[in-house]
Nucleic acid binder design. Structure first.
Length: 245
DNA sequence: TGCCATGTTAAACT
DNA sequence: GAGTTTAACATGGC
């Protein structure tokens, strides 16, 4: 559920319902102060990477769904689950569970750099390229999961992008030719929007070319499955078709 | 049925 | 103190 596009879908569902409504009460266990939010208008619901942003004029609440996060509209009826955050409006409520919630005393654009978000209109290819230049020793599989470079990219997107641009996940960022770096950056954005479309159409898994695959669709040799990188995440790749730099 | 995972953080280790 | 490992969250799919 929780890579960038999945959060984007949540935003698309919640925005038309709650945007413009006035917050009347804040509940839940999260460390979110009620005073600066109460009676303030929810002026927008946005995303930054894998986070959902609830914005008032002066403040921002960020919600990260981690692995199992859930939200519900109007129904807060599961006593087994601890309420992390509840927002009550004149009409209707919004509840979040099993997620990480942070409060910022600043507007969203001052906290999050839209240019680092692969799904944002302001996404900057030049900035991404520069950040990659600064980490020449990193493995590309780590760099793609780095939320300060590719906010929104998760493990599925990582696997699919590397396979599609034929770069081996254990390549060192600094050794990848500039042309391939450009392809990597472009494909990260392009596939992320494919992911969004396919997720909406419920055809995500059937379009995977690398993730969970046993055989390479290009050369028919078995795919490798290893737990790679700093965070030892599941990585599927073809030794034959993905070049190691 | 049991295990594992689209993720991150903080605590508990070495 | 730095770096590394583990636990926690708690659901759904295989």
């Amino acid at each position: 559920m929780p890579e960038g596009p999945s959060i984007y879908i949540i935003k698309e569902e919640l925005r038309p319902i709650f945007k413009g409504r006035t917050i009347r009460a804040v509940t839940g266990k999260a460390n979110v102060p009620e005073q600066p939010l109460k009676d303030q208008k929810l002026i927008d619901i946005k995303t930054f990477g894998k986070q959902l942003l609830l914005c008032t004029r002066d403040c921002t609440i960020s919600i990260h769904f981690l692995m199992f996060g859930v939200y519900s509209i109007d129904k807060n009826d599961k006593p087994t689950r601890q309420l992390k955050l509840g927002l009550k409006f004149n009409k209707g409520s919004l509840y979040f569970y099993t997620c990480s919630v942070k409060f910022f005393d600043q507007p969203a654009d001052e906290v999050f750099d839209a240019e680092a978000d692969v799904m944002n209109k302001k996404w900057s290819v030049a900035k991404a390229r520069k950040k990659l230049k600064d980490v020449p020793g990193e493995l590309v599989c780590d760099a793609l999961l780095d939320q300060s470079i590719f906010a929104g990219v998760g493990n599925i997107i990582k696997n699919e992008v590397l396979y599609r641009v034929r770069i081996h996940p254990e390549s060192k960022v600094g050794k990848i030719p500039a042309r391939k770096i450009t392809a990597l950056i472009k494909e990260s954005v392009r596939y992320t929007f494919d992911f969004l479309k396919q997720k909406k159409a419920d055809t995500l898994a059937e379009n995977w070319q690398a993730y969970t695959k046993k055989k390479c669709g290009r050369c028919d040799l078995p795919m490798k499955k290893k737990y790679l990188g700093k965070t030892k995440r599941r990585t599927f790749y073809c030794d034959n078709c993905q070049e190691k730099y």
